[in-house]
Design a protein around this nucleic acid. Structure first.
Length: 424
RNA sequence: CGGGAUGUAGCGCAGCCUGGUAGCGCACUACACUGGGGGUGUAGUGGUCGUCGGUUCAAAUCCGGCCAUCCCGACCA
């Protein structure tokens, strides 16, 4: 991609509306723009990152054996009345009417729609277990949207629903999903904790949250410094604990001491049990030929929220430091004097197309700006590697490799491809 | 929904107190210079001052309603 052709409106100053670092950087790096409170347009650069995370999630879901579908965003009232959630959800459920004054809502989650699908199309225990997922836009009319896409009203989420014939089988799928979520977050390279959680309005028996650790997290979690023990303090508050006094106390599992941290909830997995299946009469015939209520699990991971969480954990005073696998581009070719020196322009374009042929995603900064402007932008948007073609190239055929984390080296242009192979 | 704040060009802001020609920096356009850390000069573009109403000869400025946005709280698959 040529920088001069890319819709990439970078800003020197963060707009007044932004408070947290990821929101400021996403605005400054030209990734998103606000349309209304909690509702955003994703610009090309932001969308590239969003799609990369989406791809990682899809790959891991597929390899776990789950199957992808796409359910509607607009859902009829009747389904929601079956589970009583038309009432229970309250104003968070955005309700609309069609031209015949029939009631609908924008889907905040899809238990009703998926359960309806399964009860109508799956009749035997032999077809189980099933784990069905989608990656889709959700709408929740949050009381207070904030922090940009971290808590938007409209957001992109992967939600999946498992259907199992009994508790043991549900437990098995649950653990598979738990493992899948670990793989996803580890692939992105974020520091996280799996936290015992309150199952909230979704209901059900057991649930755990995946928290990316960050100062700006909205949840407070208690973790052991020497074990897997981690719990959302919401649960402890319900038990009447004084959270502040827990810091430094021995962990309940006997290993290590408690630390209080802030976390961004990027994923949540539930064992729902029979709650929805009973309300909606979702049965299959079991081995004995009798109707048997399905056991359900549901598993959500916030794709758009992961973008913000990744930035919260990876930034410095200059801008974003993308984990390489979700960076919008691998390489930025910074051509100094592009519009002026033919040798620079020719070499830049040649290098650009050669690197693309090698499979890299390459940005060529062909603007008529100086080194400072180009580097500032590159650092702001967090491209992992810069190749600088300038005065030195004209004289000695050497270009500089400068990584976003500060490493740099100078090499003859003919060696670059070999060196990059090493990076890869 | 309770508490707090803000709204003037794409972004950051001044002007408001004390009413009288709409301002600054960045960005943007043209030209020239410059070209390894947001460079320089000259000339430009861009505004119903959130909105509706009131006071006044006159309102960005004073008064009131409304709207929007953000922050704290409550809430949150």
């Amino acid at each position: 991609m040529l920088f001069s052709k890319l819709l990439l409106p970078t800003l020197k100053d963060a707009p007044q509306e932004a408070e947290v670092i990821s929101h400021k950087l996403m605005l400054r790096a030209g990734m998103i723009r606000r349309v209304a409170s909690g509702i955003y347009t994703w610009l090309p650069l932001g969308l590239k990152v969003l799609r990369k995370i989406e791809t990682i999630v899809r790959e891991e879901m597929d390899s776990s054996g789950a199957q992808e579908v796409l359910m509607p965003m607009v859902q009829p009232k009747e389904l929601w009345e079956e589970t009583n959630r038309w009432e229970k959800m309250g104003p968070e459920l955005l309700r609309i009417q069609d031209r015949h004054n029939r009631d609908f809502c924008l889907g905040p989650t899809h238990e009703e729609v998926i359960t309806d699908l399964i009860r109508n199309n799956v009749k035997s225990y032999k077809e189980l277990p099933l784990n069905i997922y989608q990656i889709q836009t959700k709408f929740r009319d949050e009381v207070r949207p904030r922090y940009g896409v971290m808590r938007g009203r409209e957001f992109l989420m992967k939600d999946s629903y498992s259907f199992n014939e009994d508790e043991a089988c549900l437990q098995e799928t649950y653990l598979t999903m738990r493992d899948t979520y670990k793989k996803i977050i580890e692939r992105i390279g974020l520091d996280y904790k799996i936290v015992a959680a309150d199952s909230g309005a979704i209901g059900g028996d057991a649930s755990e949250e995946f928290h990316v650790l960050a100062e700006t997290g909205e949840d407070t979690i208690a973790i052991s410094d020497d074990s897997e023990y981690a719990i959302n303090t919401e649960l402890l508050l319900k038990e009447g604990e004084d959270i502040a006094s827990l810091e430094g106390k021995p962990s309940p599992d006997g290993k290590g001491v408690i630390q209080i941290k802030k976390g961004i909830e990027v994923g949540h997995i539930f064992q729902l049990g029979k709650v929805y299946a009973e309300d909606m009469k979702a049965n299959v015939l079991n081995k004995e030929g009798k109707a048997s209520t399905l056991f359900m699990g549901c598993y959500g991971i916030g794709i758009s929220r992961l973008v913000a969480a990744a930035i919260e954990q990876n930034n410095d005073e200059k801008g974003i430091l993308w984990p390489h696998c979700i960076a919008p581009f691998d390489i930025n070719i910074i051509a100094i004097g592009y519009g002026k020196d033919q040798k620079i322009a020719d070499a830049s374009i040649k290098l650009y197309s050669e690197l693309k042929d090698m499979g890299y995603e390459v940005l060529l900064d062909d603007r008529k700006d100086g080194y400072g402007t180009k580097m500032k932008d590159s650092e702001l948007i967090g491209i992992p590697l810069n190749l600088i073609i300038g005065k030195r190239f004209i004289e000695t055929n050497e270009i500089e490799l400068k990584s976003r984390n500060g490493d740099s080296s100078t090499n003859d242009i003919s060696n670059i491809k070999t060196i990059l192979d090493f990076y890869k």
